[in-house]
């Protein structure tokens, strides 16, 4: 089973560029992340009103996932696609915003809309809600991109029939530094699923 698994497709969002399978699908000219991701969302015709309520990390993960999943023939009822995402900064960007809103006792007005994003795995929920994924999902924090861990976990899920496909990757956001690399593992595809290929694709752009 392990040898039959493939990386069917992959996406990158970094340096003001969104690409799918190595092909640039959007290039922005605004270095500011909120403006860039809004332009990308509109350009890619992603239709999801809740997008604008998400924090930066969720917007990054959501759009990177959407660019891949929009090409899949997904069911409107339920899809058995597991999610395994990872990053280094956890939800630090939003944690800082929340901290700022509670550090002054005289101006103590924590925002519920900010607070709900003070966990990195919330972005998995956003992706799952949009694409009707009722499957396994996990979010890991690593010092660096960890292809081996993602490889082993995805293999395990697919070998044990816990999912039909696994969307894996790295979505990291801290201040205005951002990077997303997601890839879809399943039986179909031309790229062999192994750590060498995962690392090669991660470093592609």
């Amino acid at each position: 089973m392990t040898n039959k698994l493939h990386i069917k497709s992959y996406s990158h969002i970094k340096r003001q560029t969104v690409s799918v399978n190595g092909n640039v699908v959007f290039k922005g000219d605004d270095a500011d992340f909120p403006n860039f991701i809004k332009s990308a969302y509109k350009h890619l015709k992603t239709s999801y009103s809740k997008f604008f309520k998400m924090d930066n990390l969720s917007k990054l993960a959501f759009l990177a996932a959407d660019t891949l999943l929009m090409h899949e023939s997904l069911s409107e009822e339920e899809n058995n696609i597991a999610l395994i995402l990872s990053n280094k900064a956890s939800s630090l960007d939003t944690d800082r915003k929340h901290q700022k809103s509670i550090e002054n006792q005289e101006e103590y007005f924590p925002s519920p809309a900010v607070f709900v994003y003070t966990l990195p795995n919330i972005c998995l929920g956003e992706i799952s809600i949009k694409h009707k994924l009722y499957s396994e999902n996990s979010f890991f924090i690593f010092d660096r991109f960890n292809a081996e861990h993602l490889y082993l976990y995805a293999n395990n899920l697919l070998q044990n029939n816990k999912a039909e496909k696994v969307l894996c990757g790295w979505v990291d956001f801290d201040e205005n530094s951002y990077e997303a690399f997601l890839y879809l593992v399943e039986s179909k595809g031309e790229i062999v699923h192994n750590t060498e290929e995962i690392n090669r694709l991660y470093n592609l752009l």
Partner: peptide, 9 residues
């Protein structure tokens, strides 16, 4: 519901 909480704040 989160919007409602935001309006309360």
């Amino acid at each position: 519901s989160i919007d409602a909480l935001e309006l309360i704040v």
